[in-house]
Design a protein around this nucleic acid. Structure first.
Lengths: 183, 183
DNA sequence: GTCTATACGTGGATAGAC
DNA sequence: GTCTATCCACGTATAGAC
């Protein structure tokens, strides 16, 4: 039985995510990705239509999952319980898709922003989520605090660099942080 | 009296910071910067040696100020008071240099990281600052919490996008957040 | 499914006139 | 101090053989 095609495709995705995150999207050439994998540029184009297509493939699932979360949250009755639940679901979502995907999004904001022109991008979804968990009558400071609580997932992953923390420790820290910021 | 040379230079810096932040460093060409200013690429090269030189110029002051802070903090006796003071000084430092510089650094991590090869880069300084404010006997979760508190300055500025918050409101929110995370 | 070869654009950077 | 003109390297992407 021969090596499956999807293995190569998965390899490309893995290396691309790594390099895009470390060096940035534009600073990473397809040549580098190909070299790292021991294949040629043309091989990449067999599996993906374009460079942007690779990013789309990397971020698509995450975006879809975020969509589901937003849809779910919108239907729930507002309140403090919802905040904690949204944070917890977002945390699980982030850990599932791996820390690196978030790091990538943070370090390549303009790329992620332009993936879906118009209002369909990631930051619009985040904004919607912000609005759902924040009451309409919250003051500026409270709004900021709640938003930071949601973003603390990303921040904590970033802060954990070089610390050798496990996913469990990170998750525990995030819950603690979010709790301190939203009560 | 003729238009001073430093005006043009300042204009370049202003536009460059704006574009680098919005579109990313590599995605922004010198041609775009020049066009926006109504000058030619060659004019840019009169004021700056290279593209990287522009970034260095943008980030140099911030880095120097951060150096001073690290040096100061290293000499202080450790303790909870130091944490609050370090956060406060870092907050003032960040607000002074403008929010955009931080946004730029966040959105172009790899560029800032490689500005000074070796250990002289921004993240090394941050790491040093982390170590100073975190006791050597802190657990993983506590360490994460304190780090996130320091980073909350950046996070809050990011979270404030599109909210129309004043610098004072942001500063107040940061102090509140840091306090909740470090007590 | 992966290769070689190549087209084509654009980017950063420099030389030299004004 | 700013321009025109130009160089060169590299990037994405495609065509077509194996």
């Amino acid at each position: 039985m021969s090596r499956r095609q999807s293995d190569t495709k998965a390899d490309i995705r893995r290396v691309a995510l790594e390099l895009f995150t470390q060096r940035g999207y534009e600073a990473t050439s397809l040549r580098e990705i190909a070299e790292r994998l021991g294949v040629t540029k043309a091989a990449l184009y067999y599996h993906f239509h374009s460079k942007e297509d690779i990013v789309r493939s990397l971020f698509g699932e995450h975006l879809a999952a975020l969509d589901d979360l937003v849809a779910w949250a919108t239907q729930q009755p507002p309140g403090p319980d919802l905040r904690a639940e949204v944070i917890d679901r977002m945390l699980r979502l982030s850990l599932d898709h791996g820390r690196q995907t978030m790091q990538f999004a943070l370090a390549n904001q303009h790329v992620v922003r332009d993936l879906h022109p118009g209002k369909e991008n990631m930051f619009e979804r985040l904004r919607t989520l912000f609005e759902v968990v924040t009451g309409p009558d919250a003051g500026v400071e409270e709004t900021l605090r709640i938003r930071v609580a949601l973003l603390s997932i990303n921040t904590t992953v970033f802060a954990a660099q070089g610390l050798g923390a496990t996913d469990e420790q990170i998750a525990a820290a995030v819950r603690d942080i979010a709790h301190r910021l939203t009560r």
